[in-house]
Simulated scan of single mutants.
Amino acid sequence: MTTRHADKNAFITGAGSGIGRETALRLASEGARVLVTDVNLASADATVALIEAAGGVALSAQVDVRDRAQIAAAVQKAKDAWGSLHLLVNNAGVVTTHSFADLTEDAWDFVVDINLKGQWLVAQEVTKLIAESGGGAVVNLSTVEALVVVTSGTTAQPHYNASKGGVPMLTKALAVELAEKNIRVNCVAPGPIATDFFDLEGVTSPEAFEFMKTRLLVPRIGMPADVASAVSWLLSDEASFVDGIQLPVDGGWLTR
């Protein structure tokens, strides 16, 4: 346990697995009390159990980031338990494997509503309490695909690219509007990370790495802990003069 986030209360979406879970564990290990939210309550509960086993403090709540009422109920749960919120991590995200030609309206709406609209809805509800609590920080999760199209095949996922491309501009707009409330807003853009978000077995296969190493400068696949470290720093007072940026955590992917 460290004290980087001592006496801070954090709200994390999509924290039942992957980068969200690792971020919840990281913030809790650094002293924060964490509200672990996920559309799958059992997964959120499992993250809470891991935090408590390590000596941290956490609560869980079922939250579909498309549902304002669920978001507001989770914010109220944090307020009832701890009286305040200081940190927000907008991590929840999805993708479907649709090319431009076969992309449906339902698939477009599903991905864009969670990846982009969901970040706006969550931020709008959570930052009300952060402002009441004296201010704090927000980190949104983007991806290198906010800037480049990444595909090892013949098609992209245009709805995913478009949804994530909106996150850096949403981040900048929120940074401008929330500055007067003493709330900083930044985003992190992961590159290839070993989670099951896409296909864990595929991402970590020798064939996938052969493709990826043509872009990577750091010769390995990223881990959820790499992203959690960046998120933790941006949320901390160590980054108090950093606002409105997108920070790539990509092993140099965007450099080439």
Rank of each mutant, 00 (worst) to 15 (best):
F110L: 13
S99H: 04
T171D: 12
K8G: 01
D226P: 12
S152Q: 05
D113A: 11
M212S: 10
E22D: 14
L147I: 11
L235R: 05
G252M: 06
V139N: 07
F209L: 10
L234I: 05
I71G: 05
A208Q: 14
G118Y: 01
V176P: 12
K128V: 12
A69F: 07
A208V: 06
E177N: 11
E52Q: 15
L247W: 09
A137V: 03
A69W: 10
R21Y: 05
F100A: 11
I183Q: 01
V231H: 00
P248R: 00
L59V: 00
V203D: 13
G153F: 02
D243Y: 07
T155F: 11
H159E: 03
A15H: 02
R4K: 13
S43C: 08
N40R: 10
L121K: 00
V36F: 03
G55W: 09
I245Q: 04
R21I: 10
A156R: 03
Q70S: 12
F241E: 09
L254S: 13
A54R: 12
I245S: 04
S84N: 10
A179R: 10
A137Q: 03
S43A: 15
T2D: 10
H5K: 06
R33P: 01
L247N: 05
E52R: 14
V111C: 11
T214Y: 06
F100K: 08
R215Y: 10
A101H: 06
A69P: 04
Q70R: 12
T23S: 08
Q157K: 07
V203P: 04
L217D: 14
R215P: 09
D38S: 02
A32K: 01
N161M: 09
G153L: 04
A208F: 14
M223K: 14
S142Q: 03
E145F: 02
D106S: 15
Q124L: 08
F11P: 00
A208H: 15
T151P: 02
N40V: 15
D102I: 00
V249W: 03
E238D: 12
L87I: 06
V122T: 05
T47V: 03
S229R: 15
T104F: 02
V218E: 10
G191S: 06
L200K: 15
N186Q: 06
N140T: 11
N140C: 08
G55T: 14
N161P: 02
A81F: 07
L87A: 02
G16M: 01
A194L: 09
Q246F: 05
S60N: 08
A239C: 01
N140M: 10
Q119H: 13
A49W: 07
L234K: 02
D67N: 10
F198R: 14
A179N: 10
P219I: 08
A54M: 09
V249M: 13
Y160S: 03
A162T: 04
T154F: 09
Q246A: 13
L216I: 03
L103W: 00
V89N: 00
G165R: 06
G20A: 13
V242F: 04
L247Y: 11
D64R: 05
F100S: 07
R66A: 01
G136F: 00
I221Y: 12
V149T: 15
E145C: 04
A162C: 08
S43W: 05
Q124I: 08
E125D: 13
D113S: 13
A156Y: 00
R68Y: 13
S152F: 04
E30D: 14
V167H: 00
S29E: 08
S142D: 07
G202D: 12
P192F: 09
K128T: 11
L170T: 12
L87F: 04
S60M: 06
